[in-house]
Every structure is written in C-alpha cells, then in structure tokens.
Design a protein around this nucleic acid. Structure first.
Lengths: 334, 334
DNA sequence: AGCGAGTATGGAAACGCTTCCGTGCATCAT
DNA sequence: ATGATGCACGGAAGCGTTTCCATACTCGCT
C-alpha cells in the first residue's frame, strides 16, 4: 500500500492540512515546516493520490482527443500539434480512436470522458444535434478541429477555397475535362470536408463556364486502392478526363498507380492534384493542396487551454488558409 | 452541477447502495427495482463520477503509453497496435510523448501516471536501474516494447539478427565495402537498438572475413536530412562504400537523396538496405528489414492486459522475428 | 499591559462512490 | 406453527484529498 497524506503528516508531526498546503504551494507555511515536510515526502517517496484530489477539486488535469483513424497521416499530424501544446501545459492527453460507427456511437453516446477529462478536442468528426446537446448538457469544454459545431470554438481550413484553388490551377493549365474523386460521403462517419471540396470543385468549374459532368464526380472512398480503382473507371469513360482532382493525397497516389498501369504519365497525359501534402507527396512530385495540419492541432489545443486556464469561453471560429503546392503531376504540358 | 448517486436513489425511492448495485451489474436486485432505477438514470442523464469510483476501487481503467517522438512512423505504427487492443478492453489510453531529455527525466522521475493509470507500456525507452527501482516500488504493472527491463515483460525484435540479415544480403550481392549509418547513440535518449544493429553489422562482416572499417561506421542521427548528409560524407571517402546499410528507412531515404544529388543510381551504383519497412519504402523500392510494428504493439498490450485482467504477473520475453524485404535498391548488379 | 490584526496550524467536513454489515421479509422444511 | 435460510435492500463507514473554520500564538501599537 502506498503512503498517504496521513503518513506524511504523522511523521512530520503536523496536521494533514499543513501537508496539503505544502503540496499545493499555498503560502502561510513556515519555511522550516515546509522543509521538514518536503524531506519526509522525499524520504517516503509519497505521491498524492490523484483520484482523491480529482474528487474534491473536480478537475482531472487531462484532456481527451477524439479522432478517427489514428493510423492516417493527416490525423497523426494534427495530433502531434495538439500533443505539443497540451504536454507543455501540464495536462495529460487521453486518446479515443474511432475506427467504426459503433465506436463513434459509443463515445458520443456514453461520453466516457466525462469526469475523467477537463476538456475535449474533437477531430474531423461532425456531431449531430442530439449529440451536441448531450455534450452541452454535460458542460464539457470542447474544441473542434477540421469540423465545427454551433456554440463551440473550431479550427478549420477553407475546404471550398482549397478545392477551388486546385481546380483553378488545372483550368489555368488548359484543362477542361476535370474529374473529382471525393472521400467517403458517409452520412455519419463521413466527413463534411468532402462535401465542401466538391462544392469548391463545382464553383471553380462554373466560374469558368465549364460544365459540371456527373460522370466526372466519383464518391471514391479512402485509401490508395480505391483511388486507383476509381481512376481506372474514369479512364475507361468514352470521354475520359484529362485532369483529376482528389480529396486526399492518398487517393491521388492511387490515381498515379492507375495511370502507371495504363502506361500513362502523370502530369503529361493526365494531370493530378491531391489534398493534404503528405510527406510522400513531395517525394512523388504530386501537386497538392497543403493544409497546415500541425498548426491546426496547436491552434485547437490553445483554444481549449484558453478556455480551461483563462475561463475564456467565447467561441471563436478560426479558418486557416490552404496553399497550392505545385509539383510534377501538373507540370506544364510540354 | 451534475447529478449524483444520491439524486438517483432519492428519486427512485431506494438507497444509494441499490443504485450502486445496479451500476455494477451486481445480482440480488429485483428486476422491477433495477428497471425503475435505470429509467431514472436515463431520464436524468446521470453518469457516475469516475474520480469517486476510482478513489474507492483504486482502479483507473486507464493505461499509459510512454513513447518517444510521437511523430515518427515506427512509433505510430506500434501505437496503433496498442490502441487496437486497449480500446477493445474498455481501458482508456493516455499518451506521454517524450521529445526531450528533460521530458524523459520528468516522466520517469515524478511518475505522473501513478494513481492515474493501472498499467504502463514503455516504448523503445530503456530505463536506468534507479528509474526501474522506482517503477518497481510504485507497484505499477508495466510492459516494455522494443526494449527490455529485468523483472518486466517485453516484446522485442532481434535487432542483431535483423542487421545480420541485411548485411548478409549485401554480401551475397557481392559487396565487400559496406557502410553502416546508425541512429543516434545518445547515452540516455539513444536507443539500444542502434547498438544491437551495429553489432549485427559487425558480426555479419566478420562471419565472411570482411574487415570492419571504422570510417564506414557513422553515428548518423535521425531523419532524412542527416541520412543524406552522412551519405555524402561516405561517398567522399577516398575509397567509398559500394553498399550502405542504415538503421532506419528514414535515413535510407536520405541516402537515396544523396545518391541522386551525385547522379548515382540506387541499387545500381550503390546498394542500400534500410530498416523498418515504412509505407514509403515500398513505393520507393527500398530493400529493408521489416519489423512487425503493429504486431509488437498488439502483443505488448495483450501482455499488459493479461497482467491486469488475469493477474498473470509472470514476466515473459518475446522476440519477434524480422524479415528481409528485397526491392530495387539491392537489385542484382546488371 | 492590553488589545487587535495577522500568521501558522490543526480538526473536521465534504467530495461521490463501493462495500460491509445488518435488518426485514418471504420461503421452506420440520 | 416455528426456526432456519436466503434474498432484497438500506445505513454507514471509508477511500485520500482539499478547504473551511477555529485556535493558539506573535507582533506592533496605544
């Protein structure tokens, strides 16, 4: 059994209140007493029981991050940014990874972080109004990254503008038959970003009086394999596109795979623009839309800490700009 | 203020003990009573206070993972395996990321997870004997992955054998001037894997009566840039190596960068073998030693749960075999 | 000398839960 | 009918802290 505050108090010949005062750096403790208590603490290797502390103070000093697909580079990068800020603040970081719809339901249904965390960072997962209400009722401070929710702060990128940027770039390169491979548009687990990007795609086409062709818009999915399969479908159209914009770099890699299989050269025969700017993109030479992923994580975490530490509960909505990174897959037709 | 067990008890017209029994699925509660209580709980949206529960049961239902460099693919992959097992068990996952020596000291000095977690998974970080003693005194169940510690279970790969495998392969390809770029050999934050791999490298050379040349062994560091810089140094030697083995894929990528800068072709002019088998390795065609990263995470987490759930405290040391993945960077000289 | 203000400290309540123990009651065998 | 048994349930202790309040003491001023 570990030592308790009583053990320390007894051996130091003081009351437990005084020990507590020392533990919490409160003033009004004689330097000599403080030193004596600290010596005993050190000697015994005493550590205050966090659960007891937590019970009486109603603070856990922990923050939970709920994110989908711990494995995917985008989320890892954002997490990295979050971690950097959180760790520095003395808070602990609890991870809830959502891989399935059941898990999603479970987390937002039972709110297992309640009473275990002081705040919540929700990544890319949009909440329904009932879920949002439940969160609100629980009075849990929360920040959304890569999504937003009424009444809460959020950090997002302008996905409509990002997609427009991508498509404008292709149009400037002279393309008129431009396809879009979306991420999954699943109603609950699907991410709204895909809808926004589709909208940006359409806006850009319309702005240049180009037709929006249904057969050029593919729901896609996630991951390289699906990108490849979808690209093959597009290439088999009677009038195949000359450029493909994908909602993620991973899918763009799949598109490159598909072109290679068909003996086509990316950037020469078919132009490609991805989304994310993963590390691999640079290496492969993929033109893409860069999202400042780590920055998003940092900003979100800072927003939450601002709430927790400074009591600043005013919701802020921050939109971080994206940039186009030009590489080989849209090199000027030569 | 949130509802407490008393509120539920009062409204249901029962004692708090009965509510507690319902919460903990204990028998000996009349079905009618149970239903009534559950209805009230649902109506109120009552959630038991975890801190209180934790205080009395002395269990937190959380597990901490201490890992270095949350950003690096190797650790992410292992973490993914850990998460998959832990989440399924109902435990929560707390992340402690170590990026600096100060953080390392802080974590293993103050053991901030004490009283907050039921168990610990330590990734790649070797502990000193004082630290180990402290951990032991705290009676915290722990498992080590990619390191080991006396008295604790561990899951490792045979790094000596892995390095031998890599170098043997190069020797079979006819190389005799083989260099080794190690990971950082930092005494405290440095990882013993680098030492083991160096040993495997030397053993393989000796087994084939090849000389171990000091100028071919480079401490390197981490990341692509350092791999590149180190490779350039090697290429500038009066008698440059014809093959380079690196302690990580990331460094191997840097080596490829260096070759490209010099107009050399990887696998043709200079052979390269990496270590890890990151996703990018497949794409680039890097021959490498594959470590079953996710599996290591899973096995480690299972070991810990076996301790926590089944009380199985017998330490086990598991060594997972590595495999050589042959790709273009060691294609047969043609 | 005496009084008020301030300081160091201890006692005890409270946080919300689990769990031990005891009580009342129905059931059953005698 | 009576005692023994078992079940459903309530009361209360206790987990290890923080914090409020009371107390004893010191100091400086009149």
């Amino acid at each position: 059994m570990a030592y308790t505050i009583k053990d320390v108090a007894r051996r130091a010949g003081v009351g437990i209140a005084t020990v507590s005062r020392v533990l919490n750096d409160s003033p009004n403790v004689l330097p000599a007493t403080r030193a004596r208590i600290l010596a005993i603490i050190d000697e015994l290797g005493y550590r205050p029981n966090q659960a007891a502390r937590q019970l009486v103070t109603a603070r856990s000093h922990a923050i939970a991050v709920v994110l989908p697909f711990l494995t995917r580079p985008f989320f890892i990068e954002v997490l990295r940014g979050i971690e950097a800020v959180i760790a520095q603040s003395g808070y602990q970081l609890i991870i809830f990874n959502v891989e399935t719809i059941e898990q999603r339901e479970h987390y937002f249904g039972t709110l297992p972080f309640l009473g275990r965390t002081d705040g919540l960072i929700i990544l890319s997962l949009p909440l329904g109004s009932i879920e949002l209400q439940r969160l609100h009722d629980a009075e849990m401070p929360a920040v959304f990254i890569d999504t937003s929710a009424p009444g809460y702060s959020s950090v997002e990128v302008d996905n409509v503008a990002g997609a427009q940027l991508a498509v404008e770039h292709l149009i400037q390169r002279g393309h008129t038959r431009i396809a879009y491979i979306s991420g999954p548009l699943h109603p609950t687990l699907g991410f709204p970003v895909n809808r926004d990007r589709k909208q940006g795609y359409e806006l850009a086409l319309l702005a240049h009086q180009l037709p929006v062709r249904a057969e050029y818009i593919r729901p896609g999915g996630d991951g390289r394999a699906i990108g490849c399969a979808t690209a093959l479908e597009l290439l088999d159209l009677p009038e195949p596109p000359t450029a493909i914009f994908t909602a993620s770099d991973e899918q763009a890699f799949g598109v490159i795979d598909a072109l290679t299989m068909r003996g086509l050269v990316p950037g020469k025969d078919v132009a490609i623009v991805g989304y994310d700017d993963l590390e691999l993109a640079r290496y492969i030479g993929l033109t893409t839309i860069r999202q400042p992923m780590e920055q998003m994580g940092r900003e979100g975490a800072e927003r939450l800490l601002d709430n927790l530490l400074n009591g600043n509960i005013e919701p802020t909505i921050q939109v971080i700009p994206v940039t186009l990174i030009e590489r080989a897959t849209t090199s000027p037709a030569s």
